[in-house]
Simulated assay, not measured.
Amino acid sequence: MKEIALHILDIAQNSISAKATLVDLTLSETPEAITFTIVDNGRGMSPELLAQVSDPFTTTRTTRKMGLGIPLLRMAVEQTGGSLTIDSTEGVGTTVTAQFRPAHIDCPPVGDMAGTITLLLQGTPQLELHYVHTIDNNRFQLTTEELRAQLGPEISLAEPEVILWIRDYLQEQEMLLRENKGMKA
Rank of each mutant, 00 (worst) to 15 (best):
P109S: 02
K2P: 09
L25C: 10
N180P: 04
C107H: 01
A33T: 10
L177S: 00
S54D: 10
D106P: 01
K184Q: 11
E32F: 09
K2Y: 08
P153Q: 08
S17F: 13
Q99G: 08
P102T: 03
K181R: 15
V96T: 10
V77I: 14
F140E: 09
T116L: 10
L147C: 14
D106E: 10
S46V: 03
N14R: 08
E159P: 05
T60R: 12
L9V: 03
L176Y: 01
T134F: 01
L119G: 07
V110L: 01
A20P: 02
P109R: 00
L157W: 08
A18R: 06
T35C: 05
I8S: 00
Q99F: 03
T58N: 12
I163A: 11
L170R: 03
P109I: 02
I34E: 01
P56S: 13
M45R: 03
G44V: 06
T89F: 02
Q122D: 14
Q122N: 14
T37L: 04
R101L: 09
P31R: 07
G67S: 12
A114L: 07
M183K: 13
S156Y: 04
T116C: 14
E146D: 15
T26S: 13
R139Y: 05
I135N: 02
E3D: 13
V77G: 12
Q173E: 12
L84M: 04
V132M: 11
T62G: 07
A33R: 09
S54M: 12
F100I: 06
D112N: 03
M175S: 08
S15R: 05
G69F: 02
E159L: 09
F100T: 02
E78M: 15
T62V: 13
E146Q: 15
D40A: 07
P56N: 12
V23E: 03
E32D: 14
N41A: 12
P56C: 09
T80D: 07
G67Y: 01
E29W: 02
R178C: 04
R178A: 08
K181H: 13
T60N: 07
P125S: 12
G111Y: 00
T116S: 08
F57L: 15
P109C: 00
R178D: 04
W165K: 14
Q126W: 15
L9Y: 02
L157V: 10
P31K: 08
V53Y: 04
I8E: 00
V96K: 00
L27E: 01
T124Q: 13
C107W: 02
A76M: 15
I105M: 08
